[in-house]
Computed example of a mutant assay.
Amino acid sequence: MNWKAEFSPEISMLTRIGRRLALCLVALLALAYLLSGIYGVGVNETGVLQRFGRIVDARIPPGLHYRVPWPMDRVVKVPTGEIHHLVAGFGADPEQVAEFERGYGPVNESGFGSFIIPYCITGDKNIIHLKLVAQYRITDPEKYVFGFKDAKSVAVRCIQSAIVRTISRSDVDSTLMTGRVILQKQILEDVQQQLSELGTGIAVFSTEMKNARPPATVAQAFKDVINAREECRTKVHDAQAHRNRIIPQGKAEASRMLNDAEAYKNRKIAHSRGESQRFEMLACEYLKDKETTGQRLYLEAASEILPVVNKVILGTNNGESIANVKFFTQEDVVGK
């Protein structure tokens, strides 16, 4: 019995089905391969398209896009819309401290192990430790991804070199207290210039000094100086407040006294002028009628003088003196 001849129709049908399934599978795989070229770029991202390693498009905007599937095309997504942070400076590095402590024991900043803590030197030859926090954006995705192996590390080195140059031109007081805002601005300008010249694709737009401090061995002395300056500033402010309070009061009192003196002067001048005019009028009247005017002036003077003095009146009786003497006080005269 020839089983091949007996089952040949079924074998032929299975062969055709297998071929069709294989074709469908190949078609599905090809479709999946082609669909794998669809990719999306986020809202805060910019895509960089490479074809066989060569950059084809370095500014792919957010949205859905298509590329030739792997291995021909490759897309690198760069977060250009986000704000990134860098911490750089000269202080205790946790990794270095941990490694040192594993081998040699605890680090004492004022003694053994202090050499592993970086520092920078100010223009007046003082040692300080400080950290600086920088905020930056990625402005050129192509330079950021392909210009350097690690553009972020390059930015950190640029910040450190800017700190060294800027701090070396400043004194310790300006660095730790009074001139920090100016120093931050100078460091920012220096970093921006370096990154622009190197072409890192990074733009730093903000720098802030953190944890600027002297070494532990002299920290207390610096603290005492700062406290003394704060106390001096407080006393100066109190003195200025007292001055600002007293001076207006003194000026107001002086103005009041000047006004009173001016009013007194005006009263005296007016009174003197009135008396002068009155005297001139009386002189004219006296020249016209000396006897009558003189008698009137005498009586007026007596009426003004007698009420304010003690008086003794001696009378006579037919030319003989009277022994009884009467004394009148001012109140008696005024009452009568």
Results as ranks from 00 to 15, higher is better:
M1L: 10
W3D: 08
K4F: 15
E6Y: 15
S8H: 07
P9T: 03
I11R: 13
R20G: 13
L21W: 06
A27E: 05
L28A: 15
Y33E: 12
Y39H: 15
G40A: 09
V48R: 02
L49V: 14
Q50K: 09
R51A: 04
R51F: 03
R54E: 14
V56S: 04
A58E: 09
A58K: 06
A58W: 02
P61K: 09
P62L: 08
L64Q: 03
Y66W: 15
P79H: 05
I83P: 01
V87E: 07
A88N: 03
G91C: 05
V97I: 13
F100M: 12
R102Y: 01
G103K: 12
G105D: 03
V107Q: 05
N108W: 04
S110M: 08
G113Y: 00
F115R: 09
I117K: 05
P118L: 10
P118N: 06
P118M: 06
Y119G: 04
I127P: 00
R137Q: 13
R137P: 02
I138N: 02
I138C: 03
D140I: 05
F146L: 14
G147Y: 04
K152A: 04
K152H: 03
S161I: 05
S161E: 09
A162W: 00
I163L: 15
R165W: 01
S174P: 00
L176D: 00
G179T: 06
I182T: 12
Q186L: 11
D190K: 02
Q194N: 07
E197N: 09
I202L: 08
S206M: 11
M209N: 03
A212C: 11
A216N: 03
T217E: 15
D224P: 02
D224A: 09
D224Y: 06
N227Y: 05
E231G: 13
C232I: 12
A241E: 13
N244S: 11
I247E: 10
A254H: 08
A254S: 08
S255A: 15
R256W: 07
N259M: 07
E262Y: 10
N266F: 01
A270S: 10
R273L: 00
S276H: 03
L282C: 03
A283Q: 10
D289H: 03
R296C: 05
Y298N: 07
E304V: 08
I305Q: 01
P307T: 05
L314D: 01
N317H: 01
E320W: 00
E331G: 05
